[in-house]
Amino acid sequence: SHCAGCKEEIKHGQSLLALDKQWHVSCFKCQTCSVILTGEYISKDGVPYCESDYHAQF
C-alpha cells in the first residue's frame, strides 16, 4: 500500500489507518501547520487538520 501523505510505499514499520487511507505515522500531519497528528484531529474533504487550525479556517 502507499502512503496518502507522501505517496511512497509503506514498507515495514508503523503505519496508521485514518480517513480510510494508510499513512506513515510521520506523514499524518496538519495540512496547515505540519504538526504530526497523534491524537485529536479534524478532517475536511479527506484532509487532516489540527483542531486549532481547523477552527481558525472553517
Results as ranks from 00 to 15, higher is better:
S1P: 05
S1L: 05
S1C: 03
S1H: 06
S1D: 15
S1V: 09
H2W: 03
H2R: 05
H2K: 08
H2S: 06
H2P: 08
H2V: 04
H2F: 15
C3K: 03
C3A: 00
C3G: 00
C3R: 00
C3P: 00
C3Y: 01
A4D: 09
A4T: 15
A4R: 08
A4N: 15
A4H: 13
A4V: 09
G5T: 07
G5S: 07
G5A: 09
G5P: 01
G5W: 04
G5V: 09
G5N: 06
G5I: 05
C6E: 00
C6A: 00
C6I: 01
C6V: 00
C6P: 00
C6D: 02
C6L: 00
C6T: 01
K7W: 07
K7V: 06
K7Q: 10
K7E: 12
K7A: 13
K7N: 11
K7C: 09
K7P: 07
K7L: 08
E8G: 12
E8I: 09
E8S: 11
E8P: 00
E8D: 04
E9C: 08
E9G: 11
E9T: 11
E9W: 05
E9I: 06
E9P: 12
I10G: 02
I10L: 14
I10H: 02
I10N: 02
I10M: 13
I10D: 04
K11N: 06
K11A: 12
K11T: 12
K11F: 08
K11H: 14
K11Q: 12
K11C: 12
H12A: 13
H12L: 11
H12G: 12
H12Q: 12
H12V: 10
H12R: 10
H12S: 14
G13K: 03
G13T: 07
G13M: 09
G13D: 13
G13I: 05
G13Y: 08
G13L: 08
G13F: 07
G13S: 10
G13V: 10
G13W: 06
Q14M: 05
Q14V: 03
Q14I: 02
Q14S: 10
Q14F: 02
S15W: 06
S15M: 11
S15D: 15
S15N: 15
S15R: 07
S15C: 07
L16F: 13
L16C: 06
L16A: 07
L16G: 09
L16E: 08
L17F: 10
L17W: 07
L17N: 13
L17E: 14
A18F: 07
A18K: 15
A18N: 08
A18I: 07
A18V: 11
A18G: 10
A18M: 10
L19N: 07
L19I: 11
L19Y: 04
L19C: 11
L19E: 06
L19S: 08
L19G: 11
L19P: 03
L19Q: 04
L19F: 14
L19D: 15
L19R: 05
D20S: 10
D20R: 11
D20H: 13
D20I: 02
D20V: 03
D20K: 10
Q22F: 09
Q22T: 14
Q22M: 12
Q22W: 10
W23M: 02
W23P: 02
W23G: 03
W23K: 03
W23D: 03
H24D: 03
H24I: 00
H24Q: 00
V25H: 08
V25T: 14
V25F: 11
V25A: 13
V25I: 10
V25R: 14
V25P: 15
S26E: 11
S26F: 12
S26V: 11
S26P: 14
S26N: 11
S26T: 15
S26Q: 15
C27P: 02
C27S: 02
C27T: 03
C27H: 04
C27E: 03
C27N: 02
C27D: 00
C27R: 02
F28V: 03
F28P: 02
F28A: 03
F28Q: 00
K29R: 10
K29W: 00
K29M: 03
K29A: 04
K29H: 04
K29G: 02
K29I: 03
K29F: 00
K29T: 08
C30I: 00
C30V: 00
C30Q: 04
C30E: 03
Q31L: 04
Q31K: 15
Q31I: 09
Q31A: 12
Q31C: 06
Q31N: 06
Q31W: 06
T32R: 14
T32E: 09
T32C: 14
T32N: 06
T32F: 02
T32L: 07
C33A: 01
C33S: 02
C33V: 00
C33Q: 01
S34K: 15
S34M: 14
S34V: 00
S34L: 05
S34I: 00
S34Y: 10
S34R: 15
V35I: 14
V35S: 11
V35K: 09
V35T: 12
V35Q: 15
V35C: 02
V35L: 09
V35D: 10
I36D: 11
I36R: 14
I36W: 08
I36S: 09
I36Y: 05
I36L: 13
I36N: 13
I36E: 08
L37E: 01
L37F: 01
L37D: 03
L37V: 07
T38V: 10
T38L: 05
T38P: 07
T38Y: 06
T38Q: 15
G39V: 06
G39L: 04
G39Y: 03
G39H: 07
G39C: 05
G39N: 09
G39E: 13
G39M: 05
G39R: 09
G39D: 10
E40W: 05
E40C: 09
E40F: 04
E40N: 06
E40S: 07
Y41F: 04
Y41P: 05
Y41S: 05
Y41V: 05
Y41E: 04
Y41G: 05
Y41L: 03
I42C: 15
I42L: 13
I42A: 13
I42W: 09
I42M: 14
S43K: 07
S43G: 12
S43Q: 11
S43V: 12
K44S: 11
K44M: 10
K44N: 07
K44W: 04
K44E: 10
K44Y: 06
D45Y: 05
D45H: 08
D45L: 05
D45V: 04
D45I: 04
D45T: 10
G46N: 03
G46K: 05
G46Q: 08
G46C: 06
G46Y: 03
G46S: 05
G46H: 03
G46E: 02
G46M: 05
G46T: 04
V47N: 09
V47F: 13
V47Q: 11
V47H: 14
P48T: 03
P48Q: 12
P48W: 03
P48D: 01
P48V: 07
Y49P: 01
Y49V: 05
Y49D: 02
Y49T: 04
Y49C: 04
Y49M: 09
C50I: 00
C50V: 01
C50A: 01
C50Q: 01
C50M: 02
E51S: 08
E51V: 09
E51C: 07
E51P: 12
E51W: 06
E51R: 10
E51F: 06
E51Q: 14
S52G: 10
S52Y: 06
S52M: 04
S52F: 10
S52N: 15
S52K: 11
S52A: 14
D53L: 01
D53P: 02
D53R: 03
D53W: 00
D53A: 04
D53N: 04
D53E: 06
D53V: 02
D53K: 06
Y54R: 09
Y54M: 04
Y54Q: 08
Y54T: 07
Y54E: 08
Y54I: 07
Y54G: 11
H55P: 11
H55F: 12
A56L: 10
A56H: 10
A56E: 12
A56D: 12
A56M: 05
Q57A: 15
Q57N: 15
Q57W: 04
Q57H: 15
Q57V: 14
F58T: 15
F58M: 07
F58R: 07
F58P: 04
F58I: 14
F58H: 12
F58Q: 00
